[in-house]
């Protein structure tokens, strides 16, 4: 199953336009004590961005966002990425489904030149 999955994924990846391979802008968000640090990140309008979550807690966290249409589990003491955008200007909420009272964050999409995305 794993081999089949990898084979098909590789086939699909070959169909991806070359420009998709260029490095995406990245924003790193750390998870410590079930909090997102920083809590708010700014990304550019109209661009795909990789949000890299580094979970320093021993327990997993499930990132959930209806605004961003994303769901992703970040295992304890590991990291994972969520791909967002291109998005229009706005404020997009995400939260940790396993710790919804503390793990709350926002992605601010703006047309300002300076954002948190490298």
């Amino acid at each position: 199953m794993r081999l089949l999955r990898q084979t098909i994924a590789l086939t699909l990846i070959t169909l991806v336009p070359l420009h998709a391979w260029s490095a995406l802008p990245e924003v790193v968000i750390e998870i410590r004590d079930h909090l997102f640090i920083p809590q708010t990140v700014r990304i550019p309008e109209g661009k795909k961005v990789r949000l890299v979550f580094i979970n320093h807690d021993s327990s997993p966290e499930e990132i959930d966002s209806f605004d961003l249409n994303r769901e992703k589990v970040i295992f304890g003491n590991s990291k994972g990425s969520i791909f967002v955008g291109p998005l229009p200007n706005g404020r997009y909420k995400f939260f940790g489904e396993l710790h919804p009272n503390s793990a709350v964050g926002y992605v601010i999409v703006s047309d300002e030149e300076k954002t948190d995305a490298d």
Partner: peptide, 18 residues
């Protein structure tokens, strides 16, 4: 029924599964 996710959400032009 076995369902498999091939690509991460939003990573490519579309998301794929089996």
């Amino acid at each position: 029924e076995l369902r498999s996710m091939l690509t991460e959400q939003g990573q490519y032009w579309a998301d794929w599964g089996l």
